[in-house]
Amino acid sequence: MSRRLRAREQAWKLALAAVIIVPLFAVPLLYLLDVSLESASQFLTDPLSFPHPVVLGNYPSAWAQGNLGQYFLNSVIYTVSATFLSVLFAVFVAFPIARRYARGGSLIYALFLAGFFLPVSIIPLFIEAQKLGLYNTQWGYVLLHLQTGLTLGVLFFVGYFSNIPRDLDESAQLDGCGYLQYVIRILLPLSGPALVTVSIYSAVATWNDLIGPIVFLASEKYFPLTRGLFTFYGQYESEWTLLAAGVFIVALPLVLTFGVIQRYLVRGATAGAVKL
């Protein structure tokens, strides 16, 4: 096929994709933006046209009434801590298994593998959270979200670390490099792609959890975005202009962050999924 012909085919394909994707994936967000800039009276009579006049006041009101900053901050804290801790823990579990440094390593590996096939255990976790004093605390909430990163991390890292030459450990040992130092200074920098993949899965699971905050948290000041925004939605369900502004305030940093890191995200997420 000639290059020109192929370019033309590509253009057709892209046009077709755009016709499907833009209305489904971009227009809803643009409509949200549109509504957030309308006055309440325009929304009641004529929601679909462009804002006339443009009302910016929905944004400060939503911010003031929704406690959105707090929810956003909580979500970031939970996601970053749970991801960081679970990946770190998983690295330290996986490496000795990969190197056979630990006796019973394959048993431990099998235990983690079983974790993939276990039932949803929100009820025992709820009871456990109360008994261990983790219920309705921020630290508890983080610990209750180590599951995804830890299980996936161990399985994924064992395979990954086995491909890192063993000579590396031995040379480091000969040079008197301590274990912790070795893992942090040598092993982790070599494991970038694996760390990214597992972190993405853990972060998405924690960030998106809605039932967790309903079951494990009782105080509004600890709510992450998922539950906080849902409460906000319930309170202002009839005031769509305010609600749309609130949702957009939260969505915008996500869209921007996502735009910046999506290349890595996409690569990491798919690399992991295909290898599993």
């Binding site: 276990l118 039932p119 255990s121 040992q173 274990y179």
Partner: peptide, 30 residues
């Protein structure tokens, strides 16, 4: 290997967390 002992010790937080927040609750469900 001389990394074996510290390596095994460093596994404990992960294993404890896994037992506590995955395995025990899953068995608890039953």
């Amino acid at each position: 290997s001389s990394y074996a002992r510290p390596g095994a010790a460093a596994m404990s937080p992960g294993i404890i967390a896994y037992l506590l927040f995955s395995l025990v609750p899953a068995l608890g469900t039953f």
